[in-house]
Design a protein around this nucleic acid. Structure first.
Lengths: 113, 113
DNA sequence: TTGACATATAACCGATTGGATATGTAATCT
DNA sequence: AGATTACATATCCAATCGGTTATATGTCAA
């Protein structure tokens, strides 16, 4: 009984979503709800073990969870961990969605929250 | 006419921000404005060439720009490319800013779109 | 012009990554 | 029980990564 049960080694969310396959998996789980591994593999041209490895990484990052039903493993999105990405990238928001003229003051104030 | 500004080979923004050093560089440029390389190196315990390499990657990803002044290269944030990350991660927004109790139905319905 | 400074690039290296194939394990079906 | 299905894990491999030191290039200052 060595195995660390859930004890997340916090495997960086940013690098986890750095991979396009993993992003696609996350998006699909978010849009279509829980899916088993075979269903998740299907749209890709890569092997099942490769997808299982991605799912493992996603699980370790806390971005998905899974439970068994019969011989299926049903994976679901666990999006809380993505919030930190949202928060980080929000720091740059003012650079793209506003003309920063007299607005600068307002933004500086918000930045202090 | 669209004209790719610097002929970006689009070296994936997601993997670019996967590195913590690069995220720190971006954040600092955003918060403190343009900086030369020496200034950017200073807070880190890694070598100047290592930072220059990161800056190269950031430039290739279109996330920073630089211009010369004397013997200095002044780097500035170019945050537009981060918007796609913001947009992507926004897909998961509903998972963290809503209590999904009786809301589940509503969400399931939306998922079918 | 010579030397110091600012920065980029080159060459190299060990660690990690993302894939493949092969095998293990548990649940279901006949 | 035996075969099949669904998935995870093990092992291996080439490519990429992030760092290093060494070197090249261009600019300023004396």
């Amino acid at each position: 009984m060595i195995s660390t049960p859930t004890a997340t080694p916090t495997p960086d969310v940013y690098s986890t979503i750095g991979d396009p396959t993993r992003r696609a998996l996350l998006l699909r789980l978010a849009e279509e709800g829980e899916k088993n591994v075979s269903e998740l593999v299907e749209p890709f041209s890569i092997s099942q073990p490769a997808i299982s490895k991605h799912l493992r990484i996603l699980r370790d990052a806390g971005l998905v969870s899974c439970h068994k039903r019969g011989r299926l493993r049903l994976y679901s999105i666990e999006a809380d961990g993505l919030r930190q990405v949202y928060d980080w990238v929000s720091h740059f928001e003012r650079y793209w969605d506003e003309k920063l003229d007299a607005l600068g003051d307002h933004l500086d104030r918000k930045a202090k929250d």
